[in-house]
């Protein structure tokens, strides 16, 4: 699974990254979590950060969901 966290490096984006990593770890799935900071690449997906992209699909925009919620999103995609 390809997971991308889009963010500018601000606090909320950092938090989304950490929670996503935790969710992946707790699920024990094979997934690559990438932190995308490049503004050009971010705007290919969305204009609002933080955002979560799972397998090239924008799953979360502009908010930081809880670890459980991220887990549910990841399992949906599997």
């Amino acid at each position: 699974m390809e997971i991308k966290v889009l963010g500018t490096g601000c606090k909320r984006c950092q938090e989304l990254l950490e929670r996503t990593q935790k969710a992946v770890e707790e699920l024990g799935t094979q997934a690559r979590v990438e932190y995308v900071k490049d503004m050009d690449k971010i705007t290919e997906y969305t204009f609002i950060t933080p955002a979560l992209v799972i397998n090239e699909k924008v799953a979360v925009v502009g908010k930081v969901p809880g670890v459980e919620e991220i887990k549910a999103l990841l399992q949906e995609e599997k």
Binding site: L6, G7, T8, G9, C10, K11, R12, C13, M39, D40, I42, T43, T46, F47, I48, T49, G62
Partner: peptide
């Protein structure tokens, strides 16, 4: 509405500028 957090301004700006 959009800029309550300063970290959201730049991606929106870049988006409007380059893709909108």
């Amino acid at each position: 509405v959009l800029a309550v957090c300063s970290c959201t301004v730049l991606p929106i700006f870049t988006g409007i500028y380059k893709r909108g």
